[in-house]
Design a protein around this nucleic acid. Structure first.
Length: 554
RNA sequence: GCCCCCGUAGCUCAGAUGGAUAGAGCGCCGGCCUUCUAAGCCGGAUGUCGCAGGUUCGAGUCCUGCCGGGGGCGCCA
């Protein structure tokens, strides 16, 4: 495999350069300013939703944080802050109350709520984006499954996670690249070629070789093409075909890459030798027992590691270092690698290598993925690429569809083992969270269609007292979105977006029950439609981050 | 032995710098369609947050030890 195939196309979320303002950020700023007046040294106050709606729309622990600094009782500080905050916000707040141990509870006005919904609609697809303080150039490397077999469900989880993470980081405001590293050199590839040769010749595959039916199919296909059939040529051609097939599967899953990097290229270009040389210049390389070692113990690893084996062949480690060096030389300042749990023991070594290359701490991260189990009536399927009995990502997509596949694969934190209940994933009902969220979106679109038939052209403002609790709750949840994005991006957890989307859908369905939209009195229909519009913006945005379609009707 | 992850409702899991009465889904029981999509909504039951200490005005969250589960510790990739 040489060269880089063109990147596939997937929907991208537009990154924003300037940090936008949003209603919640503005409130947060007011609190911060009020606290700053009390003196220095107070930690950044929190602004969150209180546990019960009666307590207010927003709650801050500012007074409790300030109390020890100014040496006064929390509730005492709180009452002063409450006055100051109320004055700063002005007409948008109904009241600022002191509650419990010293919380500041804010009750916002109806007008503020409705204006906030309008802001969301105005921001559209940009709402929630560009929330990161310090944008970085981040390269996410993920999947990178060996090109010796089809993409399994486990690799599919890497794909869904890595792709959503890349979308999320870009949306949050980082510059993001996505890359697949093809391990097209070394012993496994040799074995792969020998396995194909064996199948062509009708022999059994060699010890530890690849036995799946796809190997025989590859053999037939390559044999039909004619040309050389030695094991090395077979391996090369086999890898090419496998990579094509892997790319097709991933694109089907709406996962694309900006670049496919080849390990073989690193061998041929001399990049590996250069990397070893660079390490040698730093005095971290030595020879022992005919092998070449990297002194990783100086950099946090628990033993030194071999770069070049006694037989003169590089280990897997050496090209990996060369590859990471190349990524940095291409201008990325943070490399995020998504690895399987079985590579956990490799993290310290790679981090040591990065340090050996002189990279500052914080320029390399590894996200470790846990396994996926498919459940069907309690039965578990174990997945192994070496044998022929694995479950492929294509199989899963055929079974439950792309949307459900993507949603379920990022439903849990990537570092937690995942069980997928196929029966549930197949179900087209409210039990299935994918359809639950999509249905909310379709329902909103349906409302807009109905409203177009019966438009509210009164131009009146919404009547006073018309903001129902369910409506207030929905708007407040929608306004959380920028914070949700910032948090999910910071902790590299796109699954949080899925959970949040479900909350939005749930609040929307409750709103739908309590608040008549089409046919409401003049002024109110338009105002409520604005809330629906805001909900549609946020749900569509969440779904896009997850690579899931937002249907207009179902 | 060393390192990493995990232990929260019957099940699967959320719980962001420590904050108010620890949440959701599934499952179970019972209700709701002559009005905007019932792929929806509402109500009900269930917790020594693995155990024991410690720090704190306050601990599921932080610290220490222990118990239990998973994974990793190759001149394989």
């Amino acid at each position: 495999m040489s060269g880089s195939p063109p990147a596939g196309r997937a929907p991208r979320v537009t990154p924003m350069s300037a940090a936008p303002t949003d209603p919640v950020s503005s409130l947060r700023r007011v609190i911060t300013d009020a606290v700053a007046e009390l003196g220095d040294g107070v930690a950044e106050p929190g602004l969150e939703r209180p546990p019960r709606a009666e307590l207010g729309d927003y709650s801050s622990n500012a007074a409790m944080l300030a109390a020890p600094v100014v040496r006064r009782a929390p509730r005492d500080v709180a009452s002063d802050l409450a006055e100051s905050v109320a004055a700063r916000i002005g007409a948008d707040v109904d009241s600022v109350e002191v509650a419990g141990p010293g919380f500041l509870n804010l009750h916002m006005t109806e007008a503020w709520m409705r204006a906030a919904a309008a802001e969301v609609v105005a921001a559209g697809g940009r709402f929630g984006s560009g929330v990161v303080d310090e944008p970085r150039k981040i390269l996410v490397e993920f999947v990178s499954a060996n090109p010796t077999g089809p993409i399994t469900v486990a690799s599919g989880r890497h794909a869904a996670y890595g792709d959503s993470l890349a979308r999320l980081l870009a949306f949050a405001g980082h510059e993001v690249g996505r890359e697949y590293y093809i391990n097209d050199a070394g012993g496994q590839i040799r074995l792969f070629g020998e396995s194909i040769a064996a199948r062509i010749e009708g022999r059994g595959v060699p010890e530890g070789g690849y036995e799946g039916d796809y190997v025989a199919e590859l053999g037939e296909r390559i044999a039909a093409e004619g040309g050389a059939v030695d094991a090395e040529a077979l391996a090369q051609r086999g890898v090419e075909l496998m990579v094509d097939s892997i790319r097709a599967t991933l694109e089907r899953a709406r996962v694309s890459f900006d670049r496919w990097s080849s390990e073989r290229d690193l061998h041929e270009s001399g990049a590996i030798d250069e990397a070893v040389e660079a390490l040698r210049e730093r005095g971290l390389v030595y020879e022992s027992e005919d092998a070449i070692w990297l002194r990783t113990t100086d950099l946090g690893d628990d033993k030194d590691r071999v770069l070049v084996k006694a037989d003169g062949e590089p280990t897997y480690f050496a090209p990996d270092i060369a590859y990471h060096r190349d990524k940095l030389q291409r201008g990325w300042d943070l490399l995020i690698d998504v690895w399987g749990a079985d590579h956990h023991g490799y993290v310290a070594r790679m981090a040591a290598a990065m340090a050996a290359l002189g990279e500052p701490e914080g320029s390399f991260e590894v996200e470790i993925m846990q396994l996926v189990n498919l459940l069907e009536g309690g039965e578990r399927a174990r997945m192994s690429k070496r044998r022929g009995d694995f479950a492929t990502l294509d199989d899963l997509i055929d079974d439950i569809g792309v949307d459900a596949t993507r949603f379920f694969l990022v439903q849990r934190s990537h570092e937690t083992p995942l069980d997928i209940d196929l029966e549930l994933a197949r179900k087209q009902s409210a039990d299935n969270p994918v359809y639950y969220v999509q249905y909310a979106h379709a329902r909103i679109c349906s409302l807009f269609r109905a409203a177009a038939e019966d438009p509210d052209e009164s131009g009146e403002p919404a009547p006073a007292g018309s903001l129902e609790p369910a409506e207030r709750r929905l708007i407040t949840t929608l306004l959380e979105y920028p914070g949700q994005v910032a948090h999910a991006a910071r902790v590299r957890e796109p699954h949080a977006i899925g959970g949040y989307a479900r909350d939005v859908a749930s609040d929307f369905h409750a709103f739908y029950r309590d608040c008549r939209v089409v046919g409401a009195e003049p002024g109110l229909q338009a105002a409520r439609l604005e809330v629906c519009g805001a909900a549609r913006v946020v749900i569509a945005s969440c779904l896009e981050l997850l690579g899931i379609e937002a249907p207009e009707e179902m």
